[in-house]
Amino acid sequence: TSSHKLRLYERDDYRGLMSELTDDCACVPELFRLPEIYSLHVLEGCWVLYEMPNYRGRQYLLRPGDYRRYHDWGGADAKVGSLRRVTDL
């Protein structure tokens, strides 16, 4: 099985509160109590970021690497509604 891990930060450049995720999350704002995510670091696996909860809205593919600001993943703003692991490519 492949492993997945990413870290979410409330501010750009990996500042502020950090939360780690290793499984799908249908509602990021509810789980982490963060209305917006300004940076993230994908440590393992690929993920799909959705701008709205319950895997809706615009989708962004996140490969392992650094995303210091939301425009690094192509986002128009810092809204992160849900995240899902990519298990098949």
Rank of each mutant, 00 (worst) to 15 (best):
G16W: 05
D23G: 10
T22V: 12
K79V: 09
L62N: 04
H71F: 11
E20A: 06
R15Y: 07
G75Q: 06
G81T: 01
E20P: 12
S39P: 04
K79A: 08
Y14S: 03
N54V: 06
P53Q: 02
D24P: 01
C25T: 05
C27W: 02
C25M: 07
D72C: 11
D88I: 05
R15I: 04
D12I: 13
D24H: 01
L40G: 04
P53E: 09
Y60D: 04
L89G: 13
A76S: 13
C27I: 07
M18C: 14
R84E: 07
P64G: 14
D12F: 14
C27V: 09
L83A: 02
S3R: 05
H4T: 05
L49H: 03
S39L: 03
L83E: 01
V80L: 07
C46T: 13
L40D: 01
A78M: 11
S82K: 00
D66Q: 10
Y9I: 03
C27T: 06
L34M: 15
L62R: 00
R33S: 11
L83K: 00
C25Q: 00
D23K: 11
L61M: 14
M18W: 12
G45H: 04
Q59A: 07
C25L: 01
L43A: 05
R15N: 12
R63A: 12
R33K: 13
G74S: 05
M52C: 11
E36S: 14
D12R: 11
W73T: 08
H4Q: 01
R56V: 11
R7M: 07
R63S: 13
Y14W: 07
E20L: 04
L21Y: 03
L40S: 01
R69A: 12
L17I: 14
E36L: 08
L8P: 02
L83F: 10
Y38D: 02
V80E: 02
E51Q: 06
T1N: 11
V48I: 15
S2G: 09
D24L: 03
M18E: 14
C46G: 00
Y67E: 03
V80C: 13
G16V: 05
L34T: 09
D72P: 02
V28N: 06
L89F: 15
Q59C: 08
W47G: 04
D77Q: 10
R69C: 15
R33G: 10
Y60V: 10
S39A: 05
Y67I: 03
M52I: 00
Q59P: 05
R68H: 05
R7Q: 06
A26W: 05
Y9N: 00
Y60T: 10
A78K: 10
N54M: 08
M52L: 13
I37H: 15
D12H: 12
Y50W: 03
M18P: 01
Y38F: 15
R11C: 09
G16H: 02
E30D: 11
A76R: 12
R68N: 12
V28G: 04
S19T: 13
R69P: 02
D23R: 08
R11M: 14
D13M: 10
V28D: 02
E51D: 06
A76I: 14
A76F: 06
R85T: 07
E10V: 04
C27Y: 04
D77H: 15
L43D: 09
G81L: 00
Y50R: 04
L49Q: 00
R58S: 05
Y55P: 00
E10I: 01
M52V: 08
M18Y: 13
G75N: 04
R58F: 15
M18N: 12
D13Y: 10
P64H: 04
P35R: 13
T1V: 09
L40V: 15
E51H: 09
L43P: 00
C46L: 12
P64N: 00
G74A: 08
D23C: 10
E10T: 07
D72R: 08
Y38Q: 12
